[in-house]
Design a protein around this nucleic acid. Sequence first.
DNA 1: CGTCTATTTGAATGTACTCAAAAGCGGTGG
DNA 2: CCACCGCTTTTGAGTACATTCAAATAGACG
Lengths: 190, 190
Amino acid sequence: MYERIVQNITRHVQLTEDEINRFTSVIRTKQVRRKQYLLQAGDVMRYECFVTEGCLRSFYVDDNGQERTLTFAFEDWWTGDMYSFLSGNPSRFDVEALEDSTLLMIERQALEKLYDEIPQLNRHFRILLERAYVAMQNRIFESMSMTAEERYRAFQVRYPQFEQRLSLKHIASYLGITPESLSRIRSNRK
Amino acid sequence: MYERIVQNITRHVQLTEDEINRFTSVIRTKQVRRKQYLLQAGDVMRYECFVTEGCLRSFYVDDNGQERTLTFAFEDWWTGDMYSFLSGNPSRFDVEALEDSTLLMIERQALEKLYDEIPQLNRHFRILLERAYVAMQNRIFESMSMTAEERYRAFQVRYPQFEQRLSLKHIASYLGITPESLSRIRSNRK
DNA sequence: CGTCTATTTGAATGTACTCAAAAGCGGTGG
DNA sequence: CCACCGCTTTTGAGTACATTCAAATAGACG
């Protein structure tokens, strides 16, 4: 049940048996089916979510009604809406399951308490955030300096195993282009 | 000398006198003059840098020779290249002073040691990173769903005090557009 | 004052978009 | 098991926003 998340943490910090139990004791499990929403824009995201199985995406709907995917989350990734989680303000995202998924969720207060009781957790999430930050920075660079086609090729190279699990439409919305454009890019040469 | 950085930290965590001394003892101070480079692409960034005075930017030069600004850093902001700092790999950025600046720098090994000696520091940087991550996510959203003009207006609203300290060229490279385009946007209506 | 860089302006171009419609695919119910 | 319906993907034509290239003007610095 909790192997994946415990492994995720003990890669960076050592925890005692007792600390692990304390940690897992505040976890909630949730199943979501494909196409089901974990969060709707306007609601407050009260949990950080760890994916043990399946796949989700977080996205905005912009003024023209276009969906823009900010993140995908597969097994062993965290997802949610950090802005809403931290601030308590309504989320600007939707979070939707793309496959039937299993999530482990930690509530804000519980996590704050854990940070005090198990200071090493700060270290763990600091490290995760460092990497997430670097990945985001990379994405900004790509979105600024590459053409749609180059971004798609880079995506293929970085996430070859995930491309097959995602629809063209979702990949396009992640790359910031229209489905039509991605379809054309794919048909040019492959 | 160290008031700003100590304040930066004690906003999130309480440190003892002793811990503060330990922290400041590993800090190096550096002055950089306008147009001077703190880091050149290809070198390893061995420090995280806290700006006590002045302003810097980190940028890439893309394949067409266009500069793309990833971050600005003003007083009380951290800068550097987290990717290079963490991995020890050569940086893909240049970091350049836009004004005469004063920096406080912490070397990688020293910071790792501090994380062990003062576990609360993990908490501090976790919190900073959470915010930086949210800001980055926001920027991605803007770059995907807004026109050049909308991004510029949003920039003006978010950083009114900084717009005056930055040249058109640098703002344009931050927004991911050409100087010519920003000039046209500005002249349309202001 | 002269040089170098930044900014402005103009004209032509291109990448990706919108709108529209057809084809493909998958799921559901009869 | 097949037929239908809805959603995804493809294809086409015309368009728009921002780009490139070029040149003139303005501003900063020594």
